[in-house]
Design a protein around this nucleic acid. Structure first.
Lengths: 358, 358
DNA sequence: TTGTACGCGTTATCAA
DNA sequence: TTGATAACGCGTACAA
C-alpha cells in the first residue's frame, strides 16, 4: 500500500503533455515539431525529438480525428473477401492508395444489404475519407438511403449507382457479346448462360443485354429458360449445369460467367459424362488457373480486376487530392474473348440428346 | 450576403448538442438513451429517439475512442490479400468476430517487414483492441521491437512468435509427413519439395522437419538440393519444376507446398512433356479446384484455413471478453493427406532420364 | 430522473 | 519563436 504501487498498476498512454514535460517546452511546441512546421528553433526541435523517441510517443489518431485531421484511409465493401475477383480489386486499390499515403480497409458484407448499410455507417464513423463499393443490389432502397447520407466521395466498382461520384467496370457487354457471337457463328442455337446478380447489378444487366443483342444480330431466337441468373456460387453452377444437361432439349453450349461457377459446371459436365468440346461447348469468365490448365483448356472472357480496383482508387484520389469533380464519370476497362479448345462447331444432325441417353 | 447564406455554405456535423436541443433535453440524457441506460423516463426516451432519427445523428467514434470506449475492431495483417489462404482465414475470423459485434479490418504488407511494422503502428493508433498476424519473418528484429511495444493482445496465424498471446496453425508437420511417407513407400527415392518461407516461419520449418523425419524413418538418404524453399509464387513453381526436371538426376516425385505453386508446376510439367503419374508423382497443398479437376486429379495435403482464422479470432475474444490469459497457447488444427491419381509406384528400372530425352 | 461541467489528446489561434 | 488556451464530441461523475 505504499505510493509506489500506483506506478505498478499499469502505465497510462503517453501524451503530448508528457513529451512537453520531458522536453521542458509547451505542448504547442511539441505539436509544431511533429507537424513539421518551420517556425521552431533547431535546438528546441532536437530536444523535443529526443523526448518523443525516449517516450515512444505517437499522436492519438482519435484526438487528431476530432480536430479534423484527415484519416488517410479509404474503405472498401464487397460481398466476400474469398472471391478472388474482389481480392484482386482490393490489391489494386491498395497499391495505388499506398502511393498517396492512404491505407485501404476492407470488410465483406455477405451480400446482405443490411450488413452493407451497417458497415457503411461504421466506416463513416471511422472517418474514412472515401469509399469503394461493390454492392449486391444497386436499387435497394434502404441502401440508397444510407448512401444519400454519406458526406464523403465514393466510387462504385463493377456496379452503377446514381449517387456515386464515379463508377468503374469491365466491358462485360463486349466480352459477353464476343463470346455469344462466337458460339452462334459456330452453329450453336441453344446457348445457356449461368451467372449471378439477377440483373440487379450493372454486370448482370450488361451480360444479359449482350447475350440478347448477339442473338438478335444473328437472328437467332432466344429461349429465356436457358438463362440461369440466381447465383455465383459453385453449387449453383453444378446444379444448374446438371439440370440443363438433363433436359430433353439441352443446350449445346454454356456460358459460365462467374469465378466459382466454372468448377461447379465442370464437375457437373464430368458427372454426366458429356465430352467437351464434342458434345458441349463451354466459355467461362473470368480467366483462372483452372481454365488454363483444364483439359481441354477453357475459352474465357478475360478482364483485369486489379486494374478495376486501381482505377477506382485513382478516381477517388483525384477527387480527394485535387478536388476534381468526377461528376458521375463511368470508366470501362477492356474485356476480351480468349479462344481455347473448349468450343467447337455444333452439328445439329447429331443431336446432343442421343448421346446423353434418356 | 444575408444571414441565410450561412445555412447554405455547408452543414456541420450533427452532435449530441443538436439532438439535445431538438429533443428539448440535456446532452447527458441523450447519451444515456443511446448507451441503453435504464434510468431514463419512457416519454423522454421516445422524444430523444425521434430527435436522433430526425437528425440522423451517430456518436463520433473518434470522440468515443477518446473517452476510452472500446473500438470493437480487430486488425489482421498478412502478406497478400490475393492469396486465397489468407482470404479464407480472414473470412473465418470475420464471421466469428461478427458474432461478438466486432469488425475485422485487414491490410496486406506485401511481405515486407517495414510495411508490417508501419501497419501495426497504424492499427495501434486506430485503437484496435487486438490483432491477428501472419507475418513473413518470425525473427525479424525490427518487427519484434514493434510487437514488444504493443499494448493489446495479438494472435499469430500459421506463425509462431514468443511475444504473441497465442498461436494457431495447421498440423503441417503431420500433413507433410504423411505425404512424404506415402511417396517413399511407393518407392520414390528422390522427392523434391518446392515451397516458400525459407524456414523463417513455423509452417516452413514444420514442413522441412517432417520431410526429413519421414526420410529418416524409412532410412532413405536426403539430397538437400531437392529442397527449393524460396517462394510461394507461381513463377517460382514453374521455374524450379523446370530446373528439377531438366537435371541429369531428376526427382521422381514433387511436393508443391503452396497454393500458387501447383499451377506453376503443372505448366512446367506439361511443357517438359512429362506424364503424371507415370513419370512423375505430384502432391500439392492446399486443396483447390485445380487439384480436384485437373487430369489426373492431384493428391493433396488438405487443411481448412477458414477454421484457422476462426480459431485465432476465438482466442482473441476469450482474452478480450472474458479476460482469460492465453499464456502462449499453441493450437493445431488437423491436416490430412488426400490420395488421388497423381501418385504411382516408382520404377527405378525405367529411369526418367530416358523418357525426358537429352 | 435529469442537468451541468469536466476531461480525454490534439491542433490552431492569439498573445507574449 | 514560444506558451497558454480554446475548441473538437462524447461520457460521466456529481449536483440538483
Amino acid at each position: 500500500m505504499s505510493p509506489a504501487h500506483k506506478q505498478e498498476t499499469k502505465r497510462k498512454r503517453v501524451t503530448v503533455k508528457d513529451v512537453a514535460l520531458e522536453a521542458g517546452v509547451a505542448i504547442g511546441t511539441v505539436s509544431r515539431v511533429v507537424r513539421q512546421q518551420s517556425n521552431v528553433a533547431p535546438d528546441v526541435r532536437k530536444k523535443v525529438e529526443t523526448a518523443i523517441r525516449k517516450l515512444g510517443w505517437q499522436p492519438s489518431l482519435a484526438a487528431q480525428s476530432m480536430r479534423g485531421v484527415a484519416s488517410r484511409s479509404i474503405g472498401f465493401i464487397f460481398s466476400d473477401i474469398r472471391n478472388p475477383l474482389y481480392a484482386e480489386m482490393a490489391k489494386g486499390a491498395e497499391d495505388l492508395l499506398a502511393q498517396h499515403g492512404y491505407v485501404l480497409v476492407v470488410a465483406s458484407s455477405d451480400g446482405r444489404p443490411e450488413v452493407e448499410q451497417a458497415l457503411i455507417e461504421r466506416f463513416a464513423r471511422w472517418n474514412v475519407e472515401g469509399m469503394l463499393f461493390s454492392i449486391e443490389d444497386e436499387s435497394h432502397p434502404g441502401l440508397s438511403q444510407t448512401l444519400a447520407n454519406i458526406n464523403f466521395p465514393f466510387v462504385m466498382v463493377e456496379r452503377d449507382h446514381p449517387l456515386a461520384d464515379a463508377a468503374v467496370g469491365a466491358d462485360h457487354y463486349r466480352g459477353t457479346f464476343l463470346a455469344t457471337e462466337h458460339l452462334l457463328l459456330l452453329g450453336h442455337r441453344r446457348i445457356a448462360m449461368i451467372s449471378g446478380g439477377n440483373q440487379k447489378t450493372r454486370v448482370s444487366r450488361d451480360r444479359v443485354a449482350a447475350y440478347l443483342a448477339a442473338h438478335a444480330q444473328q437472328e437467332v431466337a432466344v429461349d429465356a429458360s436457358l438463362l440461369r441468373l440466381d447465383s455465383f456460387s459453385q453449387d449453383y453452377g453444378f446444379r444448374e449445369a446438371q439440370r440443363l444437361l438433363s433436359q430433353p432439349d439441352p443446350p449445346s453450349a454454356i456460358l459460365a460467367l462467374g469465378m466459382r461457377l466454372l468448377p461447379g459446371v465442370l464437375s457437373a459436365v464430368r458427372s454426366k459424362g458429356v465430352a467437351i468440346p464434342e458434345n458441349l461447348s463451354l466459355v467461362a469468365s473470368n480467366d483462372s488457373d483452372l481454365a488454363q490448365l483444364a483439359v481441354p483448356d477453357i475459352s474465357v472472357i478475360r478482364y483485369d480486376p486489379y486494374i478495376l480496383g486501381r482505377e477506382a482508387a485513382q478516381l477517388l484520389m483525384q477527387k480527394l487530392l485535387k478536388g476534381e469533380n468526377l461528376n458521375h464519370l463511368r470508366v470501362e476497362t477492356p474485356a476480351e474473348f480468349i479462344m481455347r479448345s473448349s468450343c467447337s462447331v455444333h452439328h445439329p444432325s447429331r443431336p446432343a440428346e442421343s448421346i446423353l441417353g434418356a
